[in-house]
Amino acid sequence: MRDSDSDAAGIVEHFEKALGPITLGWALDSDGTKMPFQIVRFARGSDDNSVGFATIGLSRYALSSPVSGREIRQELFMLAPKSQAPDTVVSLLLQVGSAALGRGRPLLRGDVIGPAGSIAPGSELTALYVTMPVYFPDEFATFTGSEGSVVVAWLVPISTPEADFVALRGWDAFEADLAQKDPDLVDFYRESVTS
Score class of each variant (00 low, 15 high):
A179N: 03
I11F: 06
G170T: 02
F77G: 01
M35Q: 15
S64L: 09
F15C: 03
S98I: 08
D3V: 05
D177S: 08
L128K: 05
R105Q: 15
R44I: 01
S68Q: 02
P36E: 02
A176D: 11
L94V: 14
S4C: 01
G148D: 12
V166D: 05
P66I: 07
R2L: 05
K181Q: 08
S146L: 11
L58M: 13
R105Y: 04
F42N: 00
E175D: 13
E191M: 09
S83W: 04
D3W: 04
F143T: 00
R70K: 07
L178R: 05
E13I: 01
Y189A: 08
T144D: 06
A54G: 00
T126G: 08
A141R: 12
L125P: 02
I11M: 08
V90R: 10
K82M: 10
W154K: 13
F42W: 05
L125H: 06
S64M: 11
P86C: 09
T88D: 08
P81L: 08
E191G: 13
S50R: 07
D111W: 12
K82I: 12
L168G: 06
G57Y: 05
L79V: 05
L155Q: 11
D164S: 13
G45Y: 02
V96I: 15
I119N: 08
E139M: 01
A116M: 14
E139L: 05
W154Q: 15
A120T: 09
T33S: 07
G110C: 03
V193L: 06
R44F: 11
I39L: 12
N49P: 00
A120P: 06
D47G: 08
E175S: 12
R73Y: 07
G69W: 08
L76W: 15
D177Y: 05
P106H: 13
F53Q: 01
F165C: 06
S30D: 13
S159G: 01
L107E: 08
A9F: 03
G104N: 15
M35P: 13
A179F: 03
L101T: 13
A127P: 13
P86Q: 03
L76E: 03
T55C: 12
G45H: 00
I56E: 03
L168A: 10
R70W: 02
T23F: 08
K17N: 06
A85L: 10
A141V: 07
S98G: 10
S46C: 04
K17P: 02
E71V: 04
L155I: 14
G117V: 13
I39S: 02
T88M: 08
M1C: 07
T144Y: 02
T33I: 09
S91K: 15
L178W: 00
P157V: 15
A43T: 01
G32K: 09
L178P: 00
G57P: 03
V51P: 00
F42G: 00
A176T: 12
D5I: 07
D138H: 11
R105L: 14
G97I: 13
S195V: 09
L168F: 05
G10Y: 05
A141N: 12
E175G: 11
L28R: 15
S64Q: 14
G32L: 09
I113M: 10
Y135T: 06
P133H: 03
R44W: 11
D5C: 04
T33L: 07
V134I: 05
P36Y: 11
W171E: 10
P36R: 11
G20E: 00
V90T: 06
M78G: 02
G117P: 06
Q95G: 15
M35W: 14
V166S: 10
S50P: 11
G102F: 06
T126S: 14
V151D: 10
S59H: 14
A27W: 13
